[in-house]
Amino acid sequence: MHIHFLDPFKAIDSPIHELDPRVKLVLSLAFILTTAIIPHGAWPVYIFLLAIIFSIVILSRLGFIFVLKRSALALPFVLAAFPVIFTIQGDPLASFNIGNWQLIISLQGVERLLSITLKSWISIQTAIVLASSTRFPDLLMAMRAIHIPRLLVAIFGLMWRYLFVMADEALRLLRARLARSGDTGLSDKKSGGSLAWRAHVTGGMAGSLFLRALERSDRIYNAMISRGYDGDVRTLPQPPLGSSQWAALIGGLGLLFILLVLSIIL
């Protein structure tokens, strides 16, 4: 088993995929920032935002179910935000008595929870579309273009390149443990010794993974040196943005600006 399915990129022919990665990165960040700035309870603007992100998801042809599944990652935090419906004071909607406690659900609290949930859902969909419609090397190029430190981008790039190698290594370790531990696959029969022992074995696996990574980085370094690496990561100059890409960038930013103004007026 190999772990190439880790890469969320989906090679589909769509207008979103064709957009220049620099434009896409800037617009995604701007969209998430706009979503964050818009105050809680500005429902009309949320509808606009949702409409925009839904149309982007549809345009990207990634499939609504795919995006929905991946966006479930933010759910545990909705749970963390849940108590605000009781703790924010305002017009009471309903109240419960649990023992000596009286819990009052307030209108403002519900508004806050709904706003947070919607905002986080809109933002995470944006991030999903960005990651699934852009190849990682293109994303790295976009990061260089918006002046993220070159060294950091180079480390990102190398990390991405070896992520799959190291993940395969981890999978091999897991498979080796499974083969030796006599796991029956039955949930009622525990495999392995005491808890501390199991943790110790897993720790040994982690230790050997890091040791292999260290040694691999030595070999990679030597290979890079022998090919003329001198600490400077050189990249091809980036092509200028075409007029349609500029139009998309300015149009997108303009739209977000209008939404921000709207949220203040409404």
């Binding site: 060294l151 180079a154 480390i155 990102f156 790039g157 190398l158 990390m159 991405w160 390149r161 070896y162 992520l163 190698v165 190291m166 993940a167 290594e169 981890a170 999978l171 370790l173 897991l174 525990k190 495999s191 392995g192 808890l195 199991r198 943790a199 074995v201 897993t202 696996m205 982690a206 993974l209 890091f210 292999r212 990574a213 260290l214 691999r216 980085s217 990679i220 370094y221 890079m224 040196i225 690496y229 001198d230 600490g231 990561v233």
Partner: peptide, 27 residues
């Protein structure tokens, strides 16, 4: 580290990421 930095940091970050897949059952 000078020019060693990029390969060492990159590969170790990948290893930490992969290391998060290692788990052991508690209960």
């Amino acid at each position: 580290l000078n020019e060693r930095q990029v390969p060492l940091m990159g590969v170790l970050a990948a290893a930490i990421f992969a290391g998060q897949m290692l788990n052991f059952s508690v209960t």
